[in-house]
């Protein structure tokens, strides 16, 4: 375990000096946290009639979610719910960026061979790399969510909204699916970084992991996907299976020999 933490500490002291990594860790969470709160704030002055009209335009199945909420509160919650999928982008993008930079960076600086020459096991090395990406990603996501919940408590027009953003749908999404997405992102980065010859291609391919999340965001905005407890539970189960498969292949594909002899 000591070696794993040493890898994590080394990764952090290195990758956080990289502007791209810093940007993804600081700027994105700031935007995704402050933007919904800003929208909530701007909606406070809106007339209830206006909001009632807006609520009537919402997808039919969403009306059930709004039961017991005023038209304004329903509109506010509808907007906030769109940001749930964006909140899930954080634990996906941050570890992908860190892991890609971490493994590809090792290649660029020719440091992977000396590391592989030590008695460290492949599992210890990969755990270190993975945790170095997953821990900051989840910390930032959960901190952002905490700020978001606190802001909602202050800015929401109805206590029902505050309760809604603390509902099992949100909690399971942020703490469950978020963590699983982090692991998936890291595993995919390791797999891609291990197999491609060009370090730049690894970074670009790894970033494709966000496409399904953007599709979910679009589907949600268009009313095709509704975040309810059933969907969240099934997604969690699906992600557990996916993570298991991805982790297995990440470890299998991270072949010391292939990396040393293929990466030119």
């Amino acid at each position: 375990m000591e070696k794993i933490w040493e890898i994590v500490r080394k990764e952090w002291s290195e990758v956080f000096k990289n502007r791209l990594v810093l940007g993804s860790v600081i700027v994105m969470p700031l935007i995704f946290t402050l933007l919904p709160l800003g929208i909530l704030y701007s909606m406070q002055g809106s007339a209830d009639v206006e909001m009632a009209e807006a609520a009537a335009d919402m997808p039919e199945h969403f009306q059930a979610v709004c039961e017991g909420l005023s038209a304004l509160a329903c509109s506010q919650y509808f907007i906030l719910l769109q940001f749930l999928s964006l909140f899930l982008l954080m634990p996906t993008i941050i570890p992908v960026t860190i892991a890609s930079y971490s493994i590809v960076g090792e290649k660029n600086t020719h440091t992977l061979e000396p590391v592989l020459a030590t008695p460290i096991t492949t599992l210890e090395l990969l755990m270190g790399k993975a945790l170095a990406g997953v821990i900051p990603a989840l910390s930032i996501t959960w901190l952002s969510y905490g700020i978001f919940v606190a802001g909602t408590a202050i800015l929401a027009v109805d206590d029902g909204i505050f309760r809604a953003v603390l509902s099992p749908v949100w909690l399971l999404s942020i703490f469950g699916i978020g963590a699983l997405l982090s692991v998936a992102g890291v595993s995919l980065s390791i797999m891609i970084s291990s197999r491609v010859n060009d370090p730049r291609a690894a970074e670009q391919l790894s970033s494709l992991v966000v496409i399904p999340l953007i599709a979910i965001f679009m589907g949600q905005a268009m009313g095709l996907i509704q975040f309810d407890l059933g969907l969240v539970i099934w997604t969690t189960i699906g992600m557990i299976v996916l993570d298991t498969v991805l982790l297995y292949f990440a470890i299998q594909l991270f072949q010391r020999e292939t990396i040393l002899t293929r990466w030119k």
Binding site: K3, S13, E14, E113, P119
Partner: peptide, 21 residues
């Protein structure tokens, strides 16, 4: 190609590898 972690100090580079060894 004896790569080093360029952003880290000489001491930190060595202490990292010492831990792994």
């Amino acid at each position: 190609n004896p790569g080093m972690y360029n952003q880290l100090s000489a001491e930190r580079n060595l202490s990292f590898f010492a831990k792994l060894y």
